[in-house]
Simulated scan of single mutants.
Amino acid sequence: MARDIAAGLGEAGFVTVSGLALGIDGEAHAASLRTGTIAGLGGAIDHIYPPQHERLYAEIAAEGLIVSESPFGDRAKAQDFPSRNRIITGLSRGVVVVEAAERSGSLISARRAGEQGREVMAVPGSPLDPREAGTNALIYQGASLVRHATDVLEILSSLSHGHVSAPPAGAYDRESSDEPLPESQIARVREALCPTPCRLTK
C-alpha cells in the first residue's frame, strides 16, 4: 500500500516525505526515488539510522533530499523522533498514515499534522487487527479515508486553499535555465542559515 500510494503520487508530480524508518517509510522512499523523495532524520545526516537502510540512504542522497536539524555527530535518540515528525509534516501538504497501532509514533505525526493545518488521511484496516487500531481511530475521529493514490489526489485538490497541481516539468531544474535566482530569494536563504549547527526553538 505504501509503495503504491507513493508511486502513484510521484507519477502525478508530487514528492514523498517520510522518516527513513524500517517498513512503511522505507517502502515509500524506495517507490518514489525516481519521482522525488525527502527523508527527515531524527539524528544528524552523517549518521545513518537505521543501519539497514545504508543503501537506500545513499540512493536518496544521490537522487532526493535528506534533512535534519541535528548537528553533525548527533545520534538519534527516542526523544528526537517527535521533533523529526514535526519536520516531516511541516514539509507536507497532507499526511497519509498507512498503518498504526493504538500507541504509535505515526499518531504523533498525525497530531502534529493537524496542529500545522495539514490534511490527515488514513488507510483503513480490519478492526480485528491491532496493527490497524490507530488508523481506524484516526478515521473515526475525522481523518479522510484513502484507498489509493487517486483518493489522496482528490482530497488534496479539494482543499480550501485552492487546486493542487503538479509543478511543470523542469520547474525546479536549475540546469534547465540560465537565469540566476532573484537576489530577494538568495537573501531569504542567507537569513535562514545559522553560522553554526542550530536547532529551531519553535
Score class of each variant (00 low, 15 high):
P130T: 10
L128K: 15
P168G: 08
E11S: 11
E102G: 15
E69D: 15
G134M: 06
T135V: 08
A2P: 03
G117E: 14
G8H: 06
A76G: 09
R188C: 14
H47F: 13
Q185P: 01
E11A: 13
R34S: 14
S109K: 00
Y172V: 06
G125D: 00
V152G: 01
G94D: 05
L91R: 01
A113E: 01
S68G: 09
V96Q: 01
G105L: 10
V98A: 02
I87E: 00
R34Y: 09
H29T: 04
Q141R: 13
D4E: 15
L33W: 07
D173C: 14
G23D: 11
S18D: 07
S176R: 12
P71D: 01
Y49I: 12
E59M: 13
R199F: 07
P51V: 12
R174G: 06
K202S: 10
A137P: 07
D178M: 12
V123A: 04
E154N: 12
L65Y: 08
I48S: 03
R75C: 08
R147P: 02
V146W: 02
S158W: 06
M1I: 14
A122K: 00
G134C: 08
A171V: 07
V120G: 00
I87H: 00
L156F: 10
P182Q: 12
T150Q: 15
D46G: 10
I45M: 15
R84F: 07
D151I: 02
S177T: 15
D151H: 06
G125K: 04
N85K: 04
A101E: 14
T16Y: 00
T89V: 08
G134V: 07
F72Y: 14
G94Q: 05
V96G: 01
V120Q: 00
P197K: 05
G64S: 07
G36A: 08
V164E: 15
S70F: 02
I186H: 04
E54D: 12
A21G: 08
L91D: 08
E154V: 12
G125N: 08
A58S: 15
P168C: 04
M1F: 08
D173E: 14
E115K: 03
G94V: 04
G23K: 03
E183L: 13
A100R: 03
D151L: 04
I5Y: 00
M121K: 02
G40C: 15
P50E: 06
I38Y: 02
D129P: 05
A100M: 02
E179G: 01
M1L: 14
I45C: 13
D4V: 11
R84E: 03
A110Y: 00
G90V: 02
I88H: 00
V95G: 01
E179K: 04
G64Q: 08
H47W: 09
E27W: 07
T135M: 04
A44R: 07
